[in-house]
Design a protein around this nucleic acid. Sequence first.
DNA 1: ACGTGTTTAGAGGGAG
DNA 2: CTCCCTCTAAACACGT
Length: 320
Amino acid sequence: MPRPGRNTYSDQKPPYSYISLTAMAIQSSPEKMLPLSEIYKFIMDRFPYYRENTQRWQNSLRHNLSFNDCFIKIPRRPDQPGKGSFWALHPSCGDMFENGSFLRRRKRFKVVKSDHLAPSKPADAAQYLQQQAKLRLSALAATGTHLPQMSTYNLGVSQPSSFKHPFAIENIIAREYKMPGGLAFSTMQPMPAAYPLPNQLTTVGSSIGTGWPHMYGSGMIDTATPISMASSEYGAYGVPIKPLCHGGQTLPAIPVPIKPTPAAVPALPALPAPIPTILSNSPPSLSPTSSQTATSQSSPATPSETLTSPAPALHSVAVH
DNA sequence: ACGTGTTTAGAGGGAG
DNA sequence: CTCCCTCTAAACACGT
């Protein structure tokens, strides 16, 4: 494949799949859920390539949203007019990508339906997210403040030593939230020349990450992603403080399970058990963005503790 | 009408 | 070579 000059990279197709791009968009939002239009916006804002042929890729993207179990649909609240639902990542989807890389999934994410204990069904996951959002809101209402800031997230336990793939969503997104110290990964492996490490861009490239070939720099983060997120969700080394698919919701909607899962027809009175924050790797204890870190961080002494603490592993598994 | 969401089908490529 | 994943196209239904 011919390598165009540096200047033309921005027009190149990013090396991410639509699933990755969608996951990035969702993950970038404070609520961890976005309407379709915002997902479009996110992608177009950051990847100039996708400002063209919108019909084509948007169709594909919608296909992915519907087809893949890793995305769950969360309806809007009645008081939140607008088209379409919110889309979120399934709480167990963090294991999809090899080594955290968003280049290609290791396996297709598939919800196991036989498990009756864990909220593996998309509907259950949606309800879980709903509860998270509710709790988040009540916590915010109680404190009267915004999301907990850096200090409460206990950076010390965020295990900066664990390797995050250069294409991991954390790195990709974190590019937009410059770390005060401009720290780079000490354990980072060399990047392919064509796609420099986002963190290098924030440090070496300094200005708005224009060195990121296919991506546009910061300042483009839309209204769905307030700057406060920079300090609240990404710690030193660009390691996200919050895990994928979890926490930080500010209640965009009161989600109700709606994914047409046959088994989901009988309404759930309540989640049998909270969904743990296992999102980065299968063994929670080995997770780079460890669940322990995440749980304590995302809900410091708030009602959500009751949801995030003791929890059996979600038995949704990437199968095929 | 348009945006959104679902579903089916097929081509292409990478990994094992 | 086969399996799996991804991408693309298309048709259709539904809601605003």
